[in-house]
């Protein structure tokens, strides 16, 4: 068979075709569809976003993403549980820093931009050195945020405790910290962006951290399948990829984390 070599002529020819195609593709190729106002919701979660200061990683990311898209996106604030409900129903277009699972995958599409592991924050005086200890001791309550899911082991752990009626749910992190300090709960699951709060609220001294032996879980932009078509999703994903590629994401993370930690979170293999 005759080998096909990329001669200059060929290159030009190909380039021309591509150009035509690109034009034919029209503005669809250029960016997401902005013909309607879009909605994006943030939830209060440590460094990701603080309602009190209206600032955080996700806030910065949202601003940048919106700017790049050129669309009008209304940013609102609501509890995480409600975010998932509205993503599912299609009333909400976007949210941020979500992880996927089988159920969520049915109604949400994702564009990953960071990953992290999950940790069990447990009171020292609970006498827990490993997950089995926590499971065994029926007096120990775990605090979780309503609608949150975690890594595999952590999910199993949480589900076991749920069946045993040992979960205390909350709408956000703040009450969980308060409850932990007051010993109303003895453990809660945290991620790296929860650390500063630990320092701030003097939780660090009371507690120990136990790792869930799972690989880091990718977090990403949540896109409602009902609200956004596959092509739109792709476009938005590309924007995110772009932000990752040009280091914007890293920069945002480095604002809040030490460079190594930021790197660990931002550099991941997208599944």
């Amino acid at each position: 068979m005759k080998k096909y070599t990329l001669t200059t002529t060929n290159r030009r020819f190909l380039g021309g075709i591509f150009f035509v195609l690109a034009c034919l593709g029209g503005s669809a190729q250029a960016g997401p569809d902005c013909s309607r106002p879009l909605t994006l919701a943030l939830h209060d979660h440590g460094l990701l976003y603080s309602a009190a200061t209206d600032s955080g990683i996700d806030k910065d990311f949202a601003d940048e993403l919106i700017r790049r898209s050129g669309c009008k996106v209304a940013v609102s604030f609501m509890p995480r549980a409600r975010i998932w409900q509205l993503i599912e129903s299609g009333a909400l277009d976007f949210s941020l820093s979500g992880i996927t699972n089988a159920e969520r995958d049915r109604f949400a599409a994702f564009a990953w931009y960071f990953s992290n592991k999950y940790y069990l924050l447990v009171r020292k005086d609970a006498g827990v050195r490993g997950l089995p200890d926590f499971e065994r001791n029926r007096d120990l309550q775990l605090g979780v945020i309503r609608s949150f899911r975690y890594s595999e082991t952590a999910n199993r752990f949480v589900d076991t405790l749920h069946d045993a009626n040992r979960l205390s749910q909350a709408g956000g992190l703040t009450p969980l910290y308060q409850a932990l300090i007051l010993n109303r709960i003895q453990g809660m699951i945290i991620e790296p962006f929860d650390y500063p709060a630990l320092e701030e609220k003097q939780i660090r001294d009371l507690t120990a951290i136990i790792e869930f032996n799972d690989p880091p879980v990718p977090h990403g932009v949540i896109m409602s399948r009902k609200a956004l078509s596959m092509t739109e999703q792709k476009k938005w994903r590309e924007l995110v990829e772009g932000m990752r590629a040009d280091g914007t994401v890293r920069r945002i993370f480095e604002k809040y984390f030490k460079p190594e930690l930021a790197a660990a979170m931002v550099d991941f293999q997208a599944p």
Binding site: D44, Q169, G171, P175, L176
Partner: peptide, 14 residues
């Protein structure tokens, strides 16, 4: 029986 913590308007209710 269950206790849940609501966060409304930056305030926690149980």
């Amino acid at each position: 029986a269950a206790n849940e913590y609501l966060v409304v308007g930056g305030n926690t209710w149980t």
